[in-house]
């Protein structure tokens, strides 16, 4: 299994973007590219293929679930695992996002010291224990 390396982080809140960058780059040692919303992410994805996409649910312009639908319609992008992050984590909502095709749903606020570990666990899950 290829280790998790490149991550696209989609998030409209600059404070969260900044702390996630520390959590993923400094703590996790990943290569992170940041985007402000779904539309911006689709633009970036035209030329960039991250290992994993970490995405906020509620964003202006284009929200997380809409962005995910766009990704799924594009053959080249459909296989990239998407992890949602949301402040409103109700069991029903988690199920709903999983049904849409998200590989996992993480809760906000998150702990910057363990975020990278959690994504690594998600990555290992996606690829099975082969």
């Amino acid at each position: 299994m290829k280790p998790l390396d490149t991550i696209l982080h989609v998030e409209d809140d600059p404070s969260i973007q900044a702390v996630a960058r520390v959590a993923l780059e400094t703590v996790g040692g990943f290569n992170v590219t940041g985007c402000d919303d779904g539309q911006h992410a689709l633009n970036v994805l035209a030329t960039f293929r991250p290992d994993l996409i970490l995405m906020d649910v509620m964003m202006p312009n284009m929200d997380g679930p809409t962005t995910l639908k766009h990704l799924q319609q594009d053959e080249a992008l459909a296989s990239i695992p998407v992890v949602f992050m949301t402040a409103r984590i109700q069991p029903a909502e988690v199920e709903q996002y999983r049904a849409l095709g998200a590989v996992d749903v993480l809760e906000k606020p998150f702990d910057p010291m363990t975020l990278a570990e959690r994504l690594r666990a998600v990555w290992e899950n996606v690829h099975g224990d082969t």
Partner: peptide
Amino acid sequence: CQSLHRIAGSAGTFGWTEVGAACREMEQ
């Protein structure tokens, strides 16, 4: 509602857990 949602999602990460929880309730 949108602003409260944003604070609810970020405040806890920076140690303001109770502010975040209060904003989440107001957002709901």
